[in-house]
Amino acid sequence: MTDLAAVFAQNASLVSAVVHQAATRDQAFDGAVDILLAKTPLVSLMPDPGPVSADSGETPVRTLAAPNLGTTDLQYLSQVCDTAGNIHLLQNGTRQFPGGIDMGVTWADYGIADTGTLVIASDSEETRLATMLCEVHVALLKVSDIRPAADSMAEELAAMTDRTGSYTAFITGASRTADIERVLAIGVHGPLELHIILVEEE
């Protein structure tokens, strides 16, 4: 791990993000599916859980939204999900799951080391919803995309935010609140867990 990646990992961990490492993209997706399989299946927050049906009825189906992957990544992830079984892989239509989905897996555009922050271009509604409605958000971040501090990447951020329809998200840890007696509680609206997989491969 580079020094910058180590700083990033340390600061992300401070806000209860779980940081993993993967040498290749494929390994990163393997890791994401492992996290999904280990998680307790979602209980929908809404009366209507959305159009999910189990093939077997035995193992509960888990929903995985993967909105901003390229073709190669998606093909690979799709294979891994098929092999594991009982995973409902979504690329579109996340809005039909307002009661929640089990996991969203997305690429992050940048990491900011000094605060352990992810920068994700969320212009697409699917990307936004995948990272908001999921119980577990797994973000893949290339080590080479980590920057030291937000103000050292102001130009890149200015370019990202200068597009019509731009929706750029800084995400640092899971959704949190301390509104009752200043006691920290995780997952008031967004994800209950944030996992970050640092990917070496370009």
């Binding site: 509604e125 019509t164 329809g165 929706y167 800084f170």
Partner: peptide
């Protein structure tokens, strides 16, 4: 806090499928 959990930069109008 070093930073809030979310800082959202909206240039808009953003995509809304409905």
């Amino acid at each position: 806090q070093a930073i809030t959990s979310y800082v959202t930069w909206i240039t808009g109008p953003s995509e809304c499928k409905t």
